[in-house]
């Protein structure tokens, strides 16, 4: 990637602390995001995969400051946005947007499509009402809807159409970064491909940067330039898409990739089945979070967590054996 770095997180952490009370003086905290260092380049799609509860959505929301970070930095073109005051942050909202997973609950049921898609324009007081409407119609047409949908309410649309409305709302201000929080996992397979292709087309056309969060490896493979794998709040592997899918180095990534079904009955392959469950995030294991389920575990894994290191150009792994 030659492009400039758009977003960089440095040791970003987000803990959810339990409520302190008379009976619970030292509440436990969930380390949903635990010291994540990521660089997102301008114009790329960075896929973020991991199983449920590994902190991928939390990471996305923390980068956007929809959730307050516990510590660390989020640098936007070198500026730490976590230190921004209210006014500066408001200006930043124009440049960073989010597409939600659940298009049922992410669209206000009492607003028309015009108001929903035009909401960002209204917040930033762009143009007159007429100009805003025209802009909304243009944007709707770009996502495959049209002016005839302006005065409809969200419940009148199918899941795929609603997600298109969500995409239109996120892109109408021409943001730099769009966090896509499992945007297609609530859609059925036939619609999923359409929406994915639409997102990819728009990204290329407008030079957008996506942080694409998903638990679906084939979806991530389809859309991403680079892929990061998360496990229990930490990034365990990060590489170019092709490199990662061809040559996974972290045992967890290897196990994940071996679980992708291949539609070919003649091919046999080694399916790595992980033993045990994901450890309770209230009480993650010491050292490498993965050591309880890892086939290559050794003593030192239980003591210290391996840092991400670059084992090949652009290929980062947090495992001492890689």
């Amino acid at each position: 990637m030659k492009n400039e770095i758009l977003i960089e997180t440095k040791q970003l952490t987000k803990y959810f602390v339990g409520k302190k009370s008379l009976f619970n003086l030292h509440p436990k905290s969930v380390k949903a995001v635990d010291g994540v260092n990521l660089k997102i380049h301008e114009g790329e799609v960075l896929g973020l995969v991991g199983e449920s509860g590994c902190g991928k959505s939390t990471l996305g929301r923390t980068i956007l400051r929809l959730l307050p970070a516990t510590s660390g930095e989020v640098l936007y073109r070198g500026q730490d946005i976590l230190k921004f005051d209210k006014k500066q942050m408001w200006e930043m909202r124009r440049k960073m947007q989010i597409i939600f997973q659940d298009s049922y609950s992410s669209l206000n049921p009492r607003m028309t499509v015009e108001d929903l898609v035009g909401a960002p324009l209204e917040v930033f007081k762009e143009g007159t009402k007429e100009q805003r409407r025209e802009r909304v119609v243009e944007m709707l047409e770009e996502v495959g809807l049209g002016a005839q949908h302006l005065y409809r309410f969200p419940h009148e649309f199918s899941g795929g159409q609603r997600q298109r409305i969500g995409i239109a709302r996120a892109l109408i201000l021409n943001p730099d970064l769009v966090v896509c929080d499992e945007p297609v996992s609530a859609l059925d397979v036939s619609v999923r491909a359409q929406v994915l292709n639409l997102m990819r087309t728009l990204q290329k056309k407008k030079g957008l940067t996506y942080l694409f969060i998903s638990h679906d490896l084939s979806v991530v493979k389809h859309i991403s330039d680079r892929v990061a794998v998360m496990y229990l709040g930490r990034v365990v592997e990060l590489a170019d898409r092709d490199e990662l899918y061809r040559n996974p180095l972290h045992p967890y990534t290897q196990a994940l990739l071996s679980a992708i079904p291949i539609p070919d009955t003649n091919r046999r392959r080694n399916r790595i089945v992980l033993s045990g469950d994901v450890p309770n995030p209230y009480n993650p294991p010491a050292g490498c979070h993965f050591h309880l389920r890892c086939s290559r575990v050794c003593e030192s894994c239980k003591e210290s967590a391996p840092a991400l290191r670059e084992v090949a150009p652009g290929h980062w792994v947090a495992c001492q054996f890689a």
């Binding site: 956007l64 929809l66 909202r93 947007q97 939600f100 669209l107 909401a119 960002p120 917040v123 930033f124």
Partner: peptide, 9 residues
Amino acid sequence: YVESARAVG
């Protein structure tokens, strides 16, 4: 959608 309102500022 409340979060979406915050996300657009």
